[in-house]
Design a protein around this nucleic acid. Structure first.
Lengths: 146, 146
DNA sequence: CCTTGAAGCTATAGTTGCTAGAGACATTAG
DNA sequence: CTAATGTCTCTAGCAACTATAGCTTCAAGG
């Protein structure tokens, strides 16, 4: 049985984060020692590792909640899990595309900065005038006001 | 003189967001009409466009605050602006690298999912066991507990 | 056995960058 | 003139933690 500190260390998750996960119901309420301290076994460890890994992969806590409830019912079809993973992949692909465009513009900006005075600074200038910018970075959702 | 709604429309920024920017001091307090409604001129419009564009590029509001205060002093060296932009570029490059690795792992996960039962699902399995994962996604800062 | 320092506990508030709601006043189109 | 829309302020909420305060418990050394 591990205390919360050891568990956090083992899983690479900070102690308050573990308590937070318990609070929002991602982790079950932990057993307690005589002195009211949380104690964790291997199952909790695995569940926390799962969460940690999924967070690392950019899944939201909500998606993780779904995946965990799926993994609790091993007899069902894994179509739902597959769908969640595919959605996450699509999300990451779109973020990648956006970031790539942003990187290009930032590079142009930085390269053009001649190191002179602010008045001539391309960084400030480009930021102030979208028309100086080659690519279109507008968020999709900002086009269609909900 | 534009009302806040027109300004928001023109700049592609939602009305509450403009008020929020004013509240946190990114935009100066707006002039008011007889009926206490905010009125904006061209200067406010440009400042808001600057903020919008910089946000699109992923700059934090803090960085934008710095850039704005730089642009208010056109005689000074643009080294600081350049540094902010370069930091932003580095940040984006690192996010790009991470996202690229995540994408690879998600793709592997999704491809391997045979569409059977949860018990055999690669998605769940890979998430639960980091050793099944080729790449290392740990956040740099999580290695060195502060 | 006792003390000390680290680690644990609860509860609350703060972070970033907005977004949503309530309820009241202003403006504008028909 | 009235109805619909827009704006006002204020407060609270979102994700996903992080930090603080003030306490209790535990493990190790003397």
């Amino acid at each position: 049985m591990l205390t919360i500190g050891k568990l956090g260390e083992a899983a690479g998750v900070k102690v308050p984060t573990i308590r937070y996960y318990e609070q929002i119901g991602l982790l079950p309420e932990a057993e307690r020692s005589a002195g009211n301290q949380r104690l964790y076994g291997r199952k909790a460890m695995e569940r926390l590792a799962f969460i940690r890994h999924a967070r690392d992969l950019g899944f939201t806590l909500e998606a993780i909640r779904d995946l965990l409830s799926l993994s609790d019912r091993p007899d069902q079809s894994c179509a739902a899990a597959d769908a969640i993973a595919r959605a996450q992949l699509a999300e990451i692909e779109s973020r990648l595309a956006r970031l790539t465009a942003l990187k290009a513009e930032l590079e142009r900006m930085v390269v053009q900065c001649a190191g002179g005075k602010i008045a001539d600074c391309r960084v400030i200038e480009v930021l102030g005038d979208h028309s100086l910018c080659a690519t279109d970075h507008r968020h999709p959702e900002s086009e269609v006001p909900s």
